[in-house]
Nucleic acid binder design. Structure first.
Ligand SMILES: [Mn+2]
Ligand SMILES: [Mn+2]
Ligand SMILES: [Zn+2]
Ligand SMILES: [Zn+2]
Lengths: 141, 141
DNA sequence: GTTCAGATGATTAAGATTCTCATTTCTATT
DNA sequence: AATAGAAATGAGAATCTTAATCATCTGAAC
């Protein structure tokens, strides 16, 4: 049960927190904006305020349950923390988001930072391009 | 003279555009927010509106004269386009920004994108860490 | 110098996120 | 199960950054 994750994170178990966690766990889209989560809550009949969604997501982030990403536009998206770090590729045409992890890039980042006298703690990497998937509805000519 | 850059970019030569370009060229800080540029204009006695600063920067970006970056916080920063692409390292403590270019990272990005069926067009990479510079006023213990 | 498209500045508006505070809900304790 | 206290919530206001409006001004061309 997900109430455990909340308790382990030191967060009181409340209905909004459980519902938001449930959406993050079960939604077919892995990367969700606060607005998107809010809409899903409304659709499922929950009376949870948008302010609460933002508040809870920020708490989840601080607790290490989710991570916050800026992929495109001006809205942050959130995704459940599932152990492994990864970076993202976003399709400029259809908005599809793919995940990847590249050992070489990760290693070089550390080396480059070190060469510049930095102890690297984090990084943000997003690739933008056109997906060549034949199913992409906005595929360029 | 910088009026040439404006003409080449197809932009009418106006006082606000010249002044903003001048600040981007001469400021000791390479990465400036719209607000920071606005303040420098005020300090030098220019009566240029903040809306104009945002408008002009957006035009400069479209013309390829500057590029817009999101390094930290919620404010975009702008820097003069000086030919070569590069990425950034930001110090979590003092905010210092260093630039780097790594051929290996760039190459792997293309390869990774290709493997995932994307034609890569752009990317955003920012490393965050603590600078180990003895001059850093916020150096961690 | 006149003309007029285009640029500017003051203001308003928009979008995303956070804050405030009165009310409600958990959790622990009787 | 009732109670109490701390914490969380919801509605709306506030904030912050950036973009849009629109009347006025400016610069390039004649
Ligand atoms: Mn992801
Ligand atoms: Mn730079
Ligand atoms: Zn990575
Ligand atoms: Zn790069």
């Amino acid at each position: 049960m997900e109430t455990n994750n909340l308790k382990k994170a030191g967060l009181k178990v409340t209905l909004p927190r459980m519902k938001i966690l449930e959406i993050l766990e079960t939604s077919e889209t892995r990367h969700l904006s606060a607005e998107a989560i809010y809409r899903e809550l409304l659709d499922s009949g929950e009376e949870i305020g948008l302010a609460t969604v933002y508040r809870v997501l920020t708490q989840f982030e601080a607790a290490g349950l989710v991570c916050r990403l800026h992929l495109e536009g001006n809205q942050a998206v959130f995704e459940l923390e599932r152990g492994g770090h990864h970076d993202h590729i976003v399709c400029n045409q259809c908005g599809r988001v793919e995940e990847f992890f590249d050992e070489t890039i990760e290693r070089r980042q550390s080396e480059v930072a070190q060469q510049h006298g930095f102890s690297i703690k984090d990084h943000a990497l997003v690739l933008y391009g056109d997906c060549l998937d034949s199913a992409c509805p906005y595929r360029p000519a």
